[in-house]
Amino acid sequence: MGKSIESILKKYDNCSRDSLISLLQEIQENEGFLSEEAIVKTGKKLKIPTSKIYGVATFYNQFRFEPTGKYHVMVCRGTACHVLGSLTVLQELEKVLKIKAGQTTRDGLFSIEVVACMGACGLAPVININGSFYANVTAESIKEIIESYRKKEE
């Protein structure tokens, strides 16, 4: 965090449209997400219509368009986790938080991100909340995990 969109864009002064993805990645790294403002400014910089940028960005799972929540839940959907039921975990999580992957709850507390593999296949299905790993998660345990974070906030 810290660098403004302008200062990032400045680095791409003589760049063409091929730099789009690395530019978006850098903005997301700083801002946590791609805002409408960021997309408009990127479009002006690289002379690409915003619709094209949005199209490219939505093609990849890595980009999000809402700020992350206070607790950012990453759900692994890699092969090992998939085999051991990560889809049920994700669906249950979406139900509990009443948001979809890529979204943030209205109170700004939780956000969900689906990731391809965390490299912790031995712990499958695995999730990660703000850096802490939770192993062998089930549809039941995910509810308790979320509840524990909610309690913290009370």
Binding site: E36, I39, P49, S51, G55
Partner: peptide
Amino acid sequence: AIEYINRGSKTLIGTTM
């Protein structure tokens, strides 16, 4: 004004944001 949004079976034609 319009472009392909998302990927795979979720693809649709839409506008920015």
